[in-house]
Simulated scan of single mutants.
Amino acid sequence: MNRISWRKTPYEILAIVILLVSLAGCSPAIKTGSGSPSILTQSVSVFSNGKEASQKVTVTLTFDRAITIVGNVDNQLAVKLNGKSVDTKTMAWHAAADKNNREKLICTLSALPSDTDPMQGRYFAVYEGSLVITAKNGASVAAITDSSRKYAAKWAKVHVQIPSGVTVVPVSSENGSVSAPAQVTVRVTSTGVIRAMTWVQFLQNGQPVMQKDYKKGSFSYTNDGSFPIHDHQLFQMNKEDYAKEIASGLESYFGKGTPTAGEYSFITNKDTVMVKANASTDGEILSLCIFNHPDS
């Protein structure tokens, strides 16, 4: 009985490989259509357990229908942190389906196990915290489809402002009158969670006190008139430390040598910050909050 030999010459093997690649290329590409998933909402959260290597940013994208992952999503997305590619020496990026909700995609930016604090070597930090996620082809991501695997997901630019974890809440406020100046007091209710700038917004009658032509050194107007505070000693800082940093920032950006010099006083008392107008203006309302959304 004759035996069939499966031994092939290098040339025959090469021909088979070329044929297989050619046939794979003939399969129809997944395109968008009436059944394409689209992003409905986006949210961002941060986490750490007090250690450098535990820091994580999670961006949750909710689609208008169930999604299926059919390829490498990471390879089809372009991720920019403060306008630059993610530093793979200090952090890792990954996108995956939510195991508990088929309509959600979970994107994470995580510290590496080797990350240490800034005084000892490489470390995780998102700095200004502006994160932009776009599709490399500009309009869709073929690695994400509807549940039938027929339609590719449509992709609009995702832009989130990564929070530091610092929060403040109003304690008291007094509107200005003809005889009394406006003032507001806030309390720091949580400290930083990850290495990120905390953007603080100072408002008068609901509008940023900082004007759009504002410049101070290398800093210029951004994030709806917010100013940044830094926390180099992140895991050692308490609420009182952050209150002092906020007051110091207010003095730096709105005090001596600025367009609003002499108009306001900034006072700290333990974990609270008070802003008080130095002149009485009837109907004036002051407020102080943490900015956590990107410019449009």
Rank of each mutant, 00 (worst) to 15 (best):
A24K: 04
G25K: 05
C26D: 12
S27W: 11
S27V: 05
S27G: 06
P28M: 10
P28K: 12
P28Q: 13
A29G: 09
I30E: 02
T32P: 06
G33S: 07
G33P: 02
S34Y: 11
S34D: 15
G35H: 13
G35E: 15
S36E: 07
S36I: 08
S36V: 10
P37H: 03
S38R: 12
S38H: 14
S38C: 13
I39R: 07
I39T: 05
I39Q: 06
L40E: 14
L40W: 09
L40D: 13
L40N: 15
L40V: 07
T41G: 14
Q42I: 09
S43R: 13
V44N: 07
V44S: 07
S45R: 12
V46I: 11
V46P: 00
F47A: 10
S48I: 10
S48Q: 13
K51V: 12
E52R: 04
A53Q: 12
A53C: 12
S54M: 09
S54A: 13
Q55K: 10
Q55V: 07
V57E: 04
V59G: 04
V59Y: 04
T60Q: 05
T60R: 06
T60S: 08
T60Y: 03
T60K: 06
L61M: 05
L61G: 01
L61T: 02
T62Y: 01
T62Q: 09
F63G: 01
D64H: 03
R65C: 06
I67D: 01
T68W: 07
T68I: 03
I69P: 00
I69H: 01
V70Y: 10
V70N: 04
N72M: 08
N72W: 08
V73A: 01
D74P: 01
L77E: 03
A78K: 10
V79W: 05
K80V: 13
K80E: 09
L81S: 02
G83R: 12
